[in-house]
C-alpha cells in the first residue's frame, strides 16, 4: 500500500478518518473519541465521519451531547450503518486515498477500490483527525490518563 517494511506508521498522512462499524462504535468508543476531539478541530482537508454503532448508541450519544462535540470538530455525525467499513452508503475511498478506520478489516479494496486503510482504535483515529497524520493519542493534552495498560479499548 505504498509503504515500506520498517517504516513508522505514525506520521503517515490520512485524508479520511472513519470512526464507526459494529467493531468500534459502541457508546464507550464514542465517549473516548469525544474526549480527544473536545475543543479540537479536524485538520484542513481531512474528512471525519462518525457513525454510531446502532440507533440506540446514537440516541445515547446525543443525550450526552457527544454529537455537538463531534460537529464542532468538523465531523459528519451520521445515522448508524455499515458506512465506510464496507464502502457502503456511498462512503468510500478514492483510488490512492489513505484512511484511518476503527473498523476491523483492511482487505485490498475493502473501503473503496484503490483506497488504503490503517486500522486503529477510536482514540488513535480521533487524534489522527486533528493532526491529519497517524497520531499517538497520548500526545494529545489530557488524553494520556485515558489510556491504561490493558484498559480494554
Amino acid at each position: 500500500m505504498g509503504l515500506e517494511a520498517g517504516l513508522p506508521i505514525a506520521g503517515q498522512p490520512v485524508e479520511v478518518v472513519f470512526i464507526g462499524s459494529c467493531t468500534n462504535s459502541r457508546i464507550s468508543d464514542l465517549r473516548l473519541a469525544a474526549s480527544v476531539l473536545k475543543g479540537n478541530r479536524a485538520a484542513d482537508g481531512v474528512r471525519l465521519m462518525i457513525v454510531p454503532g446502532s440507533q440506540q448508541v446514537k440516541r445515547q450519544a446525543e443525550r450526552e451531547g457527544l454529537h455537538d462535540i463531534f460537529r464542532a470538530a468538523g465531523a459528519e455525525w451520521r445515522e448508524s450503518g455499515c458506512s465506510m467499513c464496507i464502502a457502503m452508503n456511498g462512503d468510500q475511498l478514492s483510488p490512492g486515498q489513505y484512511a484511518i478506520s476503527t473498523s476491523n478489516r483492511n482487505f485490498e479494496g475493502r473501503q473503496g477500490k484503490g483506497g488504503r486503510t490503517f486500522l486503529a482504535s477510536p482514540l488513535t483515529a480521533a487524534a489522527s483527525a486533528i493532526s491529519g497524520v497517524v497520531t499517538d493519542p497520548r500526545t494529545i493534552p489530557g488524553v494520556s490518563e485515558l489510556v491504561t495498560v490493558g484498559g480494554g479499548y
Binding site: 464496507i86 457502503m88 478489516r105 482487505f107 485490498e108 479494496g109 475493502r110 477500490k113
Partner: peptide, 12 residues
Amino acid sequence: VDTDQIVPARYL
C-alpha cells in the same frame, strides 16, 4: 483469498 476479493461489497 478474502471475500472482498471473491465478490466486492458493492455487489452485495
